[in-house]
Write a protein that binds this DNA or RNA. Sequence first.
DNA 1: AACGCGCCCTGTCCGC
DNA 2: TGCGGACAGGGCGCGT
Length: 275
Amino acid sequence: MPELPEVETIVRDLQRLVTGATMKDATVLRPDLIEGEAGSLEAELPAARIDSIDRRAKNIIVSLSKSRRGADHLVINLGMTGRVLVLAGSDADPPHTGVIIGLKDGRKIVYQDVRRFGRLELLSAGEWRARSDSLGYEPLSDEFTAEALHELAKKSKVAVKVWLMDQKRVVGVGNIYASEAMFRAGIDPRKSAERLTKAEAKRLQASVREVLLEAINFRGTTLMDYRDAAGEKGEFSRRLRVYDREGEPCVTCGKKVERVVQGGRSTFFCPSCQK
DNA sequence: AACGCGCCCTGTCCGC
DNA sequence: TGCGGACAGGGCGCGT
């Protein structure tokens, strides 16, 4: 479900809502959501203060201090259907609640996940740094230049849309925004990454940044499950130009949007506008 | 070693 | 109405 714009929206919500809060207790209802020991997570979180909240790739990074053993980062990956909700302590826990973190101020942070593809993990600063180092370019950072994208792309024969979704290369772009970025760049998603021209690399780099920034401004895309930390839907869905629009007219040329399967995932594109 | 595929899991939708 | 199959914002581990 969540790609960079959705995770970024949740992170900004959490920054505003729970920075500086102290955890009181943690309850794990679905142990399979925890990477490592659920019991140790329940033991480590109480009394931890939330110092800051950040995003890296599609991960939410909650930086903690005063945790008993010095495990510094709670790393949350939402998988397909994960949600992080800040609720009043008296609110009922929603269906498929997996983890409840009570705060000393009476509120609670609830992790909810229907399909349970998401993961919560407690990592030391060093462990987190190593993990972060293994991930690719942040597309909204200054390091993500057209030249960098072009050089990386030259090394791979994979179809460029599939290439774009690999988190070891460029992070944060999932199935929706990959199709959208390819459309905006006017590039056939089936084209091999190594065959991208310099001009195409430049257009793709600009399109990735542009679509992600626009989607953040609309608080992400809700197709079915995505919600922000207050439980609200994202509004970018109506702005999608090709995703989930098979058979509908291309917004640019009017020809029918097509769907193909790449790497087991649907790709949507306009065969006339994308060469 | 890069790459492609199956799998994790629950819910929804569509065709018969 | 019911039922089976396909599919859904991600990512890991496997075999080649």
